[in-house]
Amino acid sequence: MTKFKHIVSIILIFCSFISIAANSSQDKKVPNEINVGLATGDAKVLSTYFNQNVELVVLDNDNVYSKAQAQQIVTNFFSKFPPIEKNAFSIIHDSGKENAQYVIGRLKTEKGDFRVYLLLKQNDGKQYIHVLRIEQQ
């Protein structure tokens, strides 16, 4: 009987680890509005997740900008390079730890594909974009 209890204990511990891993990966999920903003070329939606200052690299713009300036630069980008379809943005890789996450994705536009890098940091329960890079592939 003790062998059976030992096996049950091991199974319970294993299930606990799986549950913890599943919950922590859900915490790291990129907010859907960020995906939608990139996929539809909606800089206004995207900017609701911008930190007060954003490190932005978009074509010739490479600097730290205020939230309003960053929104204008991204708006200009999307006016020149509109996404080709509703699901034009796809995540290739994402990872992170506790309060920080990075995302690498692909954005398909009418004038070519772009690689998108995001650094998100959590503050007061909400994720904010601290770094956004949009580079031609």
Rank of each mutant, 00 (worst) to 15 (best):
L46H: 04
I13Q: 06
N123W: 06
I91Q: 04
N32I: 06
Q71I: 01
L119W: 08
R106N: 04
S9K: 07
Q136M: 08
V103T: 13
H130F: 13
I7W: 05
N87D: 15
V45N: 06
I91N: 03
N76D: 13
V103G: 09
E85K: 15
M1I: 01
A21E: 04
Q26C: 02
I20R: 01
K29G: 01
K80N: 08
H93P: 01
Q72V: 09
F81M: 03
K111V: 06
R133P: 00
K80P: 02
V103R: 08
H6D: 13
T2V: 04
I134G: 01
F14N: 02
V30P: 06
I84V: 14
E33L: 13
A100T: 14
F50T: 06
K108A: 14
L38N: 05
K28N: 04
D27Q: 05
L120H: 15
G96M: 07
E33C: 02
A22T: 05
D60R: 09
K126S: 11
Q127H: 11
K3E: 14
S24I: 05
N32T: 11
V58S: 03
I13A: 12
G125K: 11
G41A: 04
S79Y: 12
A88G: 01
I104K: 15
I7G: 02
A88H: 01
S66K: 10
V30A: 06
V30I: 11
N35I: 13
G112E: 02
E110D: 12
K86Y: 11
N61A: 07
F114D: 02
L132Q: 03
F81L: 01
F4T: 12
L46C: 08
N53E: 14
G125V: 05
E85W: 01
I129S: 03
Y102M: 09
H130T: 12
N87Y: 11
K111S: 09
G112F: 00
V58R: 02
A68Q: 09
N63K: 10
I10F: 07
N23I: 10
G37A: 07
Q137W: 03
Q26Y: 00
L107K: 05
S25Q: 11
A21Q: 07
K80A: 06
F14S: 13
H6L: 13
I34M: 09
G41Y: 04
R133W: 00
L120D: 12
R133H: 07
K97M: 13
L118S: 12
A43R: 03
N32K: 07
K29A: 14
D113Y: 07
G105T: 01
Y49F: 15
F17I: 05
M1L: 03
N35V: 12
S16M: 12
F81D: 02
S24R: 06
K111A: 08
I73L: 08
P82R: 12
K86H: 11
